[in-house]
Nucleic acid binder design. Structure first.
Lengths: 259, 259
DNA sequence: AGCTGTGAACGCATTCACAGCC
DNA sequence: GGCTGTGAATGCGTTCACAGCT
């Protein structure tokens, strides 16, 4: 398992009591939603290498999942394959892109242009995958005006103006942890309703705002946990940190393995 | 839970080997493992603000989870709280750090020192959370020798030597996607058994090697999916991307409202 | 004959609710 | 009285296995 779980902060229910008939919630499971971008990328890869039809087995291999899961996931979107044949790569690709909502670009702002913010601002993967960075913001006056990837860094105070001007719904926080909640509040007040948070802080947001968190040292710590167990299971190895932890239980040989 | 837990003493005496206690297979659920670092950080925060005891309710709030889940998670580690009172912050913090395996530093190499690699190399959160970057590697000769955060960038060819010399078990891949599998193979061949992959590629590794993937544009796409649904549920909003689907594929006729 | 799409079975994770201890 | 630790209940996600279509 690889992706963070638990992303949503609030239920999608917008109105309280529903007066008229709603078209019935589609209800794609969250775990499936998290894999759709992976399938999208795999399809793009196949498409680039000239493949125009593929079986669930092939696509699953390219995406790094098993084929039963892939078929189940796709079944939530509709019946886009052909029995006995497989999937049309271009067609399926478009359907998934449409379902995710990246058939057109989402404007995004990045707040906090330190090392990580710089890297994000220069990351070409965003523009090719449905996002367009429209503003970079930083509170430090010394950074303002600096050009990063073709955009100038603006003062944080302009946040409301920029969000409104560009109709921004998605914001990225790459500030130090102490600033994160304040930045978040200002983003939300300005109208942003989805936030990708790189700061190591727990954000509190109002109902209806989504937050996803990416935390680099948490990922490493999860690896460390498994690594420690491997080391304990195999005392011959020397790939162990300098001091050994005291008397932990040895683990069954098969241990934890990801693909 | 069936296995009784031996609460050990608070003394952070790392290295003292326990004689012959052979408990049972621990088997902490993966979902719990992924949250332990979050609890660890929350505890560190509480500790820094002078709190020395907390209830499951308080700690859960600081970590952004509900208290039932927190208590369940902690119960897999042992009985480290006191009924009617709560948890000793320092004690619990040490127990979790020990369980994760970050009571001492893990040496880490980073491969691919582009924008993201730079950011990672400069990220201070690693060193304070159980990791020590011991080498930076890049295949591009123009980058080699450059100093980043006090370390020189080494040629990729030295990977085997560096991994062995520093007993590295964990590697970080921050290269372009095309290079990722090759870098991964070399890392594994050199003895690395845990990999944190930032490249947008599916890595194939032998049994026994763990891979975790962090993909920035996938996180954004997941947000976009939910954002799109909010926009559809609330047509009054104007936080919708600029254009409409651009005939990328035929037969988009059924539109967005169906099913 | 081959491959998709899906109900049913299974297993894991979360939540509930309360027994057990301070 | 208050809070932890945990079986039991519930809910979700994955896997199985095969019906249904080409």
């Amino acid at each position: 398992m690889t992706t963070p779980r638990n992303a949503r902060t609030a239920a999608p229910a917008v109105g309280a009591a529903e007066p008229s008939a709603k078209p019935v919630e589609r209800g794609i499971p969250e775990a499936t939603v998290a894999r759709l971008p992976v399938y999208l990328r795999a399809l793009t890869g196949l498409s680039d290498t000239g493949v125009d039809t593929c079986s669930s087995e092939e696509l699953a291999a390219a995406a790094g999942v098993n084929s039963a899961k892939l078929r189940k996931d796709l079944s939530y979107l509709g019946s886009y394959g052909t029995r006995g044949v497989g999937y049309d790569v271009e067609y399926l690709r478009y359907q998934i892109a449409r379902e995710i909502g990246v058939t057109q670009d989402w404007p995004v702002v990045i707040v906090g242009i330190g090392n990580l913010g710089h890297a994000l601002a220069n990351y070409s993967g965003f523009s090719s995958r449905g996002f367009r960075i429209v503003a970079l913001l930083d509170a430090d006056p010394r950074r303002q005006g600096e050009d990063v990837g073709g955009l100038g860094i603006r003062p944080f105070e302009e946040i409301e103006r920029l969000v409104e001007e560009h109709h921004v719904a998605i914001g990225v926080i790459a500030t130090p942890a102490v600033a994160a909640q304040h930045v978040c509040d200002r983003l939300v007040a300005a109208g942003v309703t989805s936030i990708l948070n790189f700061a190591p802080a727990v954000l509190t947001v109002p109902h209806g705002v989504d937050v996803r968190k990416v935390d680099l040292s948490i990922e490493l710590q999860i690896l460390a946990y498994h690594e420690q167990r491997k080391a304990l299971a195999d005392p011959g190895s020397d790939a162990v940190p300098d001091a050994l932890p005291s008397g932990l239980a040895p683990l069954a040989a098969d241990g934890v393995v990801s693909r």
